[in-house]
């Protein structure tokens, strides 16, 4: 089953418009961040909406969406693992760890996966002494082992 992140509103143009109007920002990025926070991702319709609110072209809005790695055009998986793969974590073995993580989770780094878990490479979480480190649904874990990773992901998958 395609398990996606929970806790977000279903898309509604009217609701989105009302939320954007209440925020009263004419800057592209904050409006997109608001949309993503409420709906979990940035649907195609939102691009047109933000372009109207900001009085810019849809291309300008799309340019911002495609630029920032945080902004996504499809719903997030139920469990998002953001694994730090930068230098300080490399020093603590994250090159090997990420291969092992792919194996225990049965998914590939940075590839779309409908199974409810995604594994994303990020560059630095500011936990550079206690690597390998990952943000899993906004909770930071340090000195992570693959066994721990597997257990955390399984628990979060079972939670409603």
């Amino acid at each position: 089953m395609n398990q996606v992140a929970t806790g977000f509103r279903p898309w509604s143009t009217q609701v989105a418009m009302a939320i954007l109007e209440s925020k009263a920002s004419t800057l592209i990025l904050p409006n997109l961040q608001t949309i993503q926070k409420e709906f979990g991702f940035i649907p195609h319709e939102a691009i047109e909406l933000v372009s109207k609110v900001c009085n810019v072209s849809r291309a300008d809005v799309h340019g911002v969406v495609s630029y920032y790695t945080d902004l996504r055009e499809t719903p997030a998986a139920k469990v998002c693992v953001k694994l730090c793969v930068a230098e300080a974590c490399q020093a603590n073995g994250v090159r090997e760890f990420s291969v092992a993580a792919e194996q225990v989770l049965g998914i590939k780094l940075d590839q779309h996966n409908p199974g409810g878990v995604e594994l994303e490479a990020v560059y630095c979480l500011g936990n550079c002494v206690l690597g390998p480190t990952a943000l899993i649904n906004d909770t930071l874990y340090g000195r992570l082992t693959t066994e721990q990773l597997k257990a955390i992901v399984e628990t979060k998958l079972e939670n409603k």
Binding site: C84, A86, E87, A88, C89, Y123, C124, G126, C128
Partner: peptide, 8 residues
Amino acid sequence: DEGDSGTF
């Protein structure tokens, strides 16, 4: 925007 790896 402390993005450098190894800084915190």
